[in-house]
Write a protein that binds this DNA or RNA. Structure first.
Lengths: 208, 208, 208, 208
DNA sequence: AATGAATGAGGATTCATTCAT
DNA sequence: AATGAATGAATCCTCATTCAT
């Protein structure tokens, strides 16, 4: 009711803060319960803002979940990068260890993304499309690295190796989600990296 | 749609048949839309029985989905078996091809199961527990086969290989779900089998 | 399926036993939750017989609850009787103590009856009518006793005293239900009996 | 029924008014049909707001009925007050007449409360707890009045008299509910007041 | 930039009851 | 004398969303 004694400019900042609170809450709930389970009411209760405020920041529920995915992916990507040193296998292992660590530190992105990817709802929500796009991007990053590692391979072989690389990561992540502490993720990722390297070498050998 | 060719009036006194109709409908819907998306109303509409009849056959929604998982797994398990002939690698590949085929033929079990496995809700549904239990059973089947293949391994190594074997299958399944026809599942499973075999051999070599 | 080796006559007995099991269960549940809360499913679960069997023994839910009231009242009535010895006040107190004890021993009848009496549902169920009838009967028993105790009273005075006598019993029963162990029901009933006696005496004195 | 004389379109932005409409409807229905009989759909139909709006104002059905009890009790309490003039018995009778009148005017509170009090369900509704709490408050009001009336009594005696006073009121209310017009509530309450007064006097006399 | 209130559709589940066996 | 199965209506409650303020 009192007016004039609050700096108008703060608004922007508060708005951004609210948006963040909403995204935090939505991330937590969506990775607990998936798309359908992440109700606006639950997000509202967790972040303390009324449901109508969520609609001020996001067009609809789909928009909110897409934003969650987007932000999670940005955080995830910033956590690791391709190493450029060492021999072929060493570099492979180095990357794998980074991914393993990133998965342990920030599992939301992948958990939520996989949940969306596995669902086959009639009308595809934007959130799922966002995850698939983001994953394509990862693919684009991986492909040249493999080509660099084993120059003699055909495009189809590179594609297959990249697919296998990502599939292994997904599968190991799932194993960790199910198995909990009994799963030694770093060791498994090292094994995966070695297997990939061996496969690449074998492919090159076989084509000669 | 056609009318006249179904006996309108037997109804009542089927029991087992109704249960099966419900399970069929629930399987289809749940593997399309996950746990939360599989509403009782949807299942009821698809199987033709009123919602209240579903509750005669199943205690609640959770019980229904758990039954879906249980039945799907039994069907899936019966679709493949350990081969007993050939060299180690050949046998490995033979198993992998069977699994690939089973995944292509009846993906319901794994899709639904993985969706549940990824969720982390505060009170875990019995359906998820059922999937985890059933997966443990698959583990028990796999372990002796690996031990047979590479007799020199320690328990921990066998466990790690079995985990990696299943993780690869999960990951490749996810890849197929996302990538669709661009994914050559049999080729990837063959690659996975080879990688597994190589890893086992490498492990034995390193421990000597 | 086997036939001939069971005496046909047992049927009657089994039927009676089932009926009793149903009534026992219905009594317990109805005094816990009232008329609307006593669902057939709950009764079925408690007595172990399927819901359809309840409908074999009772026409409908209303009929079942009416039977519960009827049986409870018979049990309750058989638990006490008018004493014929002693002076006026002593007899009054003796009756009151019996009622107190009966209420403590078998509270179902009154609890359920009062619940029904307080409800004002549009269509009066038979069960409520049954309770009111049964209470009228108690009234008929009480009236001559009062007239005997204080012969000079008018009909209206006797009616008022009987009403007050029953109201006190009802109210003390409610107090016991709410207050639990902190309520000394025998002492309160003794007080009530004395109060009644005094009131009767005062009435006679005032009319002279 | 008449149409045209209500402004159709204000709606929204009332809040307190809606809450009141809901409480009014719930009070009427709950005192007719009890806790289980007061369905949200019935309340919704009577107050004109959709069921979901009821849940904006009240957490759940239990919360709604508890609020009904709370408000009814406040209204009921404000309808009478302790008189300060006259002799002991005159004051007692004056209070009793006020209570009788309040019961005749606004019986909702007590009817609904007694129904809840008589139920013994496994998980007690908050509404019942509210009634018991509110009744304790009435007790606290009554106790000093009795102590004032008969100063020589022990705590236990005062407690017993207060219990009997309330029990009588409850019982007479029930009698009125069942007996309808054949019950002269004011006369019975006067009798009850006299009985209470006599009992107090007798208690004091006996302890000397 | 935010929110209190509202709303209709739909969520899971239970209801009393029926009927063929 | 009993029961497995079914059924439509009703139960409480949550859903995503809107809108006036």
């Amino acid at each position: 009711m009192a007016r004039g004694d609050k700096p108008q400019r703060r608004r922007r900042v508060d708005g951004e803060a609210s948006r963040t609170r909403i995204l935090d809450a939505a991330t937590e709930i969506a990775s607990e319960r998936g798309y359908e389970g992440a109700s606006i009411a639950l997000v509202s209760a967790k972040c303390g803002l009324p449901a109508s405020s969520i609609y001020w920041h996001f067009k609809d529920k789909d928009d909110l979940i897409a934003a969650v995915i987007e932000r999670s992916f940005a955080q995830w990507l910033s956590a690791w990068q391709m190493p450029t040193e060492g021999t072929g296998r060493e570099r492979m292992v180095a990357v794998a260890m980074q991914i393993a660590k990133a998965l342990l530190d920030a599992p939301d992105f992948l958990r939520l993304g996989l949940m969306l990817a596995l669902e086959r709802r009639p009308v595809e929500p934007r959130a799922r499309a966002m995850f698939v796009a983001v994953r394509d991007q990862a693919f684009e990053t991986l492909t040249p690295a493999i080509r660099d590692l084993a120059p003699g391979l055909t495009d189809a072989q590179v594609y297959q190796l990249a697919t296998y690389a990502i599939a292994g990561a997904d599968g190991l992540f799932v194993a960790k989600e199910i198995g909990g502490d009994s799963i030694d993720l770093p060791a498994l990722f090292e094994m995966h990296a070695t297997a990939l390297y061996d496969s690449a070498v074998r492919m090159v050998a076989e084509s000669e």
